[in-house]
Write a protein that binds this DNA or RNA. Structure first.
Lengths: 211, 211
DNA sequence: AATTCACTGTAACCAATGTTACAAAACTCT
DNA sequence: AGAGTTTTGTAACATTGGTTACAGTGAATT
C-alpha cells in the first residue's frame, strides 16, 4: 500500500535501493483535514514526505500574528523541518493539513547517510530547498509588489489549484487570517471580484469563474 | 594569502582536506564597492564563498521593481546560486557588493563530489540553506507585520551592523529603492526618527544614535 | 562669487487599507 | 417555527503610505 503510493510519485525521483530503504524505515501517517503536523518551535525527529493531499505552511510572529507562506503538494517535502531535524534546531513554522493527506515520516538518523549513498537523494534535498527558496521569493514578491485585490485573487486561484477544486469551502475570516488583514477588507475586495465576474460568492463557499 | 583568509573563517567549519581542495580549485576575486556579482537570470558556474565584506541580495520583479532581501556577511555563501549552479538553472536574484569584498569562487563540478566526501561540506550546505530560509522568513515577517517606520529603523540598524559602522553613507533615494517605496516617504519617516532622537541626519550621511 | 547640481524638507492631496459599528442573511438546534 | 449562532454586507471614518510640486540647502564647479 505504502509501496504503491511511493512508486507512484517517487519512482522517477529515487533509486530503487533508496525506495526500499524508505519503505523499511519510513512511518506512514494519515492526516485528517486541519490536523496539525508541525507547530512553531517543534524539534523535528524526521522529515515528512508528502504522498497525497495538501499542507499549509504558516508563519507566526511573537504577537501571534499569522501569515501564509505557501502550500506543499504531493511529491514535496518540508525543507524547514529538514533543517530542524538534521541540526536539532527548532522549526520556525506551523504546518497544517488543508485536506486529508498522507505522509511518510523519514527518521532523521538516515538523512545524512542517504546524502552520501544516493545521488538521487542529494538531488532531491537540494531541489527541495530550491523550490522552497523560490516559493519564499514569490511570497516576498507578492507582499512587496502586489496590492490587496491582486493578492486576494492570487490566493484564491493558487489555493484552488493546490486543492484541485474550483469551489473553495472557506469563510472571509479564514482568508483574512491567512493574508494577515481584517475580515472587512476581504469582504470588500471579494465583493469587488464578484462584480468583475471573476468569482461567485456564497456562504462558506467561493466559486472561481476565471483563472 | 587566500589560505590565511580561508583558515581565519573556515578552519572551524571545514576539514583540513577540504580546505586543501578549496585552495586548489577555488578562484579568488576581489570586488569593488557596488560591483555586480550576480545578476538576474545568470547561470552560475560556481558558488561564491564570502571571505570578507558585505553583499546585498536584491529581488527584482518583471516590471523592474526592486526590494532588498538580505545581506551576506563573511562566512556566508549564496544559497540561491548553489541551487542555480548544481541544477544549471537560472538565478532569481541580484547580488551587489555593499563594500569592498573578497570571495572565493568554487567551481560547480566539485559541489556534488564534496557532498559525498566531506561531512563538513554537507553540514555547511544544509546550514547555509537553513540560514537563508530563516533570513527569508525574517524578510517576510518584516513585510507582513511591520509598518514603514519600524521597517526603516530595522533597515538602518541592520545595515549598520553588517557594515560595522554607526554612520551610513547613503541617500534617501537609495533607501527608498531598497525598501521599494518613494523618496518622500523615506524623508518623512527619517525626520520622524530624528525627532525621536534615534538618528541624526546629514547630507549623504545618517548617524545612528540608538540601537 | 555666481552657477549648477544633487539632495533634502515640507505641504497638500489622493488612494489604499484598517477599524468600528451595526444590520441582514443563512444556517443550526430545539 | 423560533431562538441563537455564524457569516456576510456595508457605511462611515481613521490611518498609512504614495504622489506631485516646489522651495531650500549644501557641495562642487566655473
Amino acid at each position: 500500500m505504502i509501496r504503491e503510493k511511493l512508486e507512484e510519485f517517487y519512482s522517477f525521483v529515487f533509486e530503487k535501493e533508496l525506495l526500499d530503504e524508505i519503505e523499511q524505515v519510513g512511518v506512514y501517517k494519515k492526516l485528517r483535514e486541519n490536523e496539525l503536523l508541525v507547530d512553531l518551535g517543534d524539534q523535528m525527529k524526521g522529515v515528512p514526505l508528502l504522498l497525497d493531499g495538501a499542507i499549509k505552511i504558516v508563519r507566526e510572529d511573537k504577537k501571534g500574528e499569522e501569515i501564509l507562506l505557501y502550500f506543499l503538494e504531493r511529491g514535496d517535502t518540508c525543507a524547514s523541518s529538514f533543517a530542524s531535524a538534521i541540526s536539532n534546531g527548532k522549526c520556525g513554522i506551523r504546518a497544517i493539513a488543508e485536506k486529508e493527506s498522507e505522509i511518510i515520516f523519514l527518521p532523521k538518523e538516515k538523512l545524512d547517510d542517504w546524502l552520501v549513498k544516493y545521488k538521487s537523494w542529494r538531488n532531491f534535498v537540494i531541489d527541495s530547498y530550491n523550490i522552497r527558496l523560490n516559493e519564499m521569493m514569490e511570497t516576498i514578491d507578492t507582499l512587496a509588489f502586489m496590492k490587496m485585490d491582486e493578492r486576494l485573487y492570487k490566493y484564491l486561484t493558487d489555493k484552488a489549484q493546490i486543492l484541485r477544486e474550483t469551489t473553495l469551502k472557506t469563510t472571509h475570516q479564514d482568508i483574512a487570517y491567512d493574508m494577515h488583514t481584517s475580515r472587512v477588507v476581504i469582504s470588500r475586495l471579494l465583493k469587488q471580484l464578484e462584480n468583475e465576474g471573476k468569482i461567485k460568492l456564497n456562504r462558506n463557499r467561493i466559486e472561481i469563474l476565471q483563472f
